[in-house]
Design a protein around this nucleic acid. Structure first.
Lengths: 159, 159
DNA sequence: CCTGAAATTGCCGCTAA
DNA sequence: TTAGCGGCAATTTCAGG
């Protein structure tokens, strides 16, 4: 299981379910069923199938960083000096351990990684960028850009 | 309401609630209450307060783009040729209308925007980048980087 | 459609300013 | 004393079979 295969064949009803659940992840199954034009039982079966197939990775409350004292957001591009497996591995571990890194991707192009980072203020950000990130294993170069405004909120995948 | 003020004073219990709800947004209030050491009633009251204060923006099912036929992910940096209000406004509208743009931020630095984009394949991505994005109002230059792997899943804000 | 569990609400008691 | 918070109990709604 777990790895599961790419496309578990989504029909129109599945897609409707996914659209609603991405918008309101805590909706009652009863109400969801009504919105997608099914009765509760088959609707619940479909939800379970989507969960088990990994189409729905999990459910989450989306927390606004600004409202919890983390008004600074930045994206940092990172280049490693070596692409040796051990170096990358150590870097991954270091990233995983830092809670201010909300998300991280390995990228194509001249920079190897992109990090989405939050911080309480510029001092905290500087602390992260200079003391933590630059000293992580293999880090050669970083380039930070700060988020001025979020144009589009944490979006929904178009299904 | 809606805009609400920055920090509605979170105590330790609020933070515990937020940590759990970011990890499992569909947990039963009863169980959540137990995990954070409260009974259901005050726990539910706190949840409602966090929702109303905008600390919890919403709940969402997190859908894996790969599992719904969107295996290509990219980040695109965009520079506008003009920063006139109308140009920016028109660009924002154009971005909002494109479902393949999961998220968009206005950024500091030499590029004005960062977009997180998904696509079914490279053709679809090229279509978006060349036909849609480059023709959006005010777009001067774009630079795409593709996601190779997601190191850190859609993260939780550290509260 | 039925049964057990969960969400929600009213009401009361405790504590701190 | 009052505002704020937590808990029990009753009611309504939901999940899951």
């Amino acid at each position: 299981m777990s790895k599961a295969n790419s496309a578990p064949e989504l029909d129109a009803a599945d897609r409707r379910i996914l659209r609603v659940l991405q918008r309101d992840g805590r909706i009652a199954v009863t109400q969801l069923a009504e919105e997608v034009g099914l009765s509760a039982t088959p609707c619940l079966r479909r939800i379970r199938r989507l969960e088990e197939a990994g189409v729905i990775a999990r459910y989450a409350a989306l927390v606004d960083p600004k409202r919890v004292g983390l008004p600074i957001q930045a994206f940092v591009q990172v280049a490693l000096s070596s692409h040796a497996e051990e170096v990358a591995e150590a870097f991954h571990k270091a990233i995983a351990a830092r809670e201010e890194v909300l998300a991280a991707w390995a990228m194509s192009g001249d920079m190897d990684y992109l990090l989405h980072v939050v911080a309480a203020d510029f001092d905290a950000y500087a602390e992260f960028a200079l003391k933590a990130l630059l000293r992580m294993p293999g880090v050669k170069e970083t380039r930070s850009s700060f988020v001025l405004t979020a144009l589009k909120p944490p979006g929904a995948v178009p299904v």
